[in-house]
Design a binder for these strands. Sequence first.
DNA 1: GAGAGAAGTGTACGTTGTACACCTTGGTTG
DNA 2: CAACCAAGGTGTACAACGTACACTTCTCTC
Lengths: 236, 236
Amino acid sequence: MSQQADATRRVRLNRDRVLDAAVALADQIGIDALSMRRLAQELAVVPMALYKHVGDKEDLLDGMVEQIIREIDDPVQDIDWKSALRLRVLSARSALQRHPWARQAIESRRNPTPAVLEYQDSIAEIFLTGGITPDLAHHAMHTLGGRMWGFTQELFDGSAGPEDETVPGIEAQAATIAHMVERYPHVVTIATATQHDEGSVVGHGCDDQFEFEFALDLLLDGFEQRHLRGWTSART
Amino acid sequence: MSQQADATRRVRLNRDRVLDAAVALADQIGIDALSMRRLAQELAVVPMALYKHVGDKEDLLDGMVEQIIREIDDPVQDIDWKSALRLRVLSARSALQRHPWARQAIESRRNPTPAVLEYQDSIAEIFLTGGITPDLAHHAMHTLGGRMWGFTQELFDGSAGPEDETVPGIEAQAATIAHMVERYPHVVTIATATQHDEGSVVGHGCDDQFEFEFALDLLLDGFEQRHLRGWTSART
DNA sequence: GAGAGAAGTGTACGTTGTACACCTTGGTTG
DNA sequence: CAACCAAGGTGTACAACGTACACTTCTCTC
């Protein structure tokens, strides 16, 4: 009886199983609620068992990020740099969008992990093989910033009202709106302007994807123009 | 003797004193190390005393953010929208730069506070009084994102090497570099290309301010071009 | 079957945010 | 001046966190 009689025999843990479970759990309960204890519980294991597979919580987060990056598609070959870049970024975006906590997790990492560097290298490669000078490519990558991961990087969230856990009554809501119009008239103008189009043919209100592509294309156009003009950081 | 004999009589706390102390402390030790207990200690008070002045830690952070926003200069009047916007953003940037933790703090807030909304409103106002359509202004603000606060929003940090707490020996350093060149050749090319200019006349290597203004101007140019072309979200 | 190394357990500690009951002020009012 | 009372400050306590350290138990190899 080297085999345990128990039918619900426990499968051995390993780093991948831990990371996958962590990713799945973060998808469910969010990254802030993810604790070593909660994760251990999910794996039907005592908290300290996890430390045989990850060094500490930082390492866990690093591993989770790598797991996500692995979901990004490989770069598309044999197209112009602008399209290649566009596709690559949008692919990263769609991968990261499946895990709402990923942005925060990636940003919180202090040192880039190999997978992160690899991804950045593939972006750099697209610029360089497209004929962009290292100088311009350098600044372009800085400019892309988080956007090269598909982050929208919003602070102005469209709705722009102080949201509460509790759903306000209709009259409280009206009062809030009236208050907003008085105090923040320009924000209200902008926030509501595009929402009028909502039902119309092709208007885009606060469509996250549209916002992202608007920004991305604006950046790519800017890079291209500077490239064609022979831009250099030396004369500015 | 209604006055206490003690010469080091304690001044009464109030919300502002608490927030100012919190900002100063965060400047010193960073936002992660800032705990209610540590802050209380700084104010020579028992931790729970703080809760008479702030609701909870979230409220403390909110208050700290408001304190910082108060440092941003008022908008400049009577200039074209592009310049006005540029100045306003750069002013925000310089204010936030005095407090390295501010970015994280602002981004972590769930609901915008009045001061945040006020600032956003002032940005919106610049667009609208400049004749930009609410539609375009809406998307422009989304595009600016964190950049309208002066955030650089980097992930690619220029140095791009896995930094360690411990300073590596010279041969370990060389090994790391060789390893980087092999694994991430394009990143290395880009990272080192502009550093060659370092000693030269007007080249800009990894100057954070330069990177920021490069991106900002690229965005502003993009907005302007779309504005002049009568851009609408309806036909894209 | 024995031995070894990896995997999992149990207990324990210091740190965190904050609830709750208490005491101590200092300004207002009789 | 004394009495009062809200606001400010204290002390104790608890649950949750990450993780160090010593232990038992599994699984694989000889």
